[in-house]
Design a protein around this nucleic acid. Structure first.
Length: 211
DNA sequence: ATGCCGATGTCCT
DNA sequence: GGACATCGGCATC
């Protein structure tokens, strides 16, 4: 475990969830269950900006047993079941009572491909193995039982990757599947790496980040 | 290449 | 009863 440079809680305990979503590109998502380690580089994320964001489960102060973890301290997992089938992995950010989160939408496998293949029934040559939030959760063996998991522990965490992401290779676009969110559906809160085969969505229309 | 549709837990009306 | 931060299979163009 010592080989991984785990992100400290302070990384997630910041106000700008959109910046956090962008900065998570190139980081490694790591799971370690029963000694089996799987690692994927984060290549696609989306920011969800809490009570003011109509696309967020926490929109308008909405609070349910499912979403309660988003109102908790930062640096914890928020995992929920989507369409009754898919387990979607998010990281809680900001501060307690401010329910911001970043959805991890796609990974590029780094380590543990055999375990990923066993869990999904696919080979690593099929990019769909970790493309899309439902698929990556299956490959990493993440499910709703881990909602609320502290990412400072060693079962699920995020670590610095082994290379720097070139800003010119980061594209942004509106979020996927949130058409119901009115004008908030237009916000460019999705970030992804240019030309990466593991990025979800068909022919994504993206723009370079301007900074 | 594009589109429809079924699966199905949680939350909402 | 319907919508939903999805996915894969099958039909059609």
């Amino acid at each position: 475990m010592a080989a991984f440079d785990k992100l400290p809680r302070s990384f997630f305990a910041r106000e700008d969830v959109v910046s956090i979503a962008r900065e998570l590109l190139g980081m490694w998502l790591v799971t370690r269950f029963s000694g089996v380690i799987t690692v994927g580089m984060i290549v696609e994320t989306e920011a969800y900006a809490g009570t003011q964001d109509k696309a967020s489960h926490a929109w308008n102060e909405r609070r349910t047993p499912r979403t309660e973890v988003m109102y908790g301290p930062p640096g914890h997992a928020y995992v929920y079941l989507c369409y009754g089938i898919h387990h979607l992995f998010n990281v809680v950010t900001n501060a307690e009572d401010i329910p911001h989160a970043v959805l991890i939408r796609a990974l590029q496998p780094v380590k543990g491909e055999a375990a990923m293949s066993r869990r999904t029934g696919k080979t690593v040559h099929d990019a769909s193995i970790t493309r899309g939030p439902g698929n990556l959760s299956r490959a990493m063996a993440i499910d709703v039982r881990f909602s609320g998991e502290d990412l400072q522990r060693n079962r699920i965490f995020i670590a610095r990757g082994d290379q720097v992401v070139d800003e010119t290779n980061i594209l942004r676009s509106p979020r996927i599947g949130v058409g119901y969110a009115g004008t908030d559906a237009l916000l460019p809160y999705r970030f992804y790496l240019r030309n990466n085969p593991y990025v979800s969505g068909k022919n994504p229309v993206g723009h370079e980040t301007s900074r």
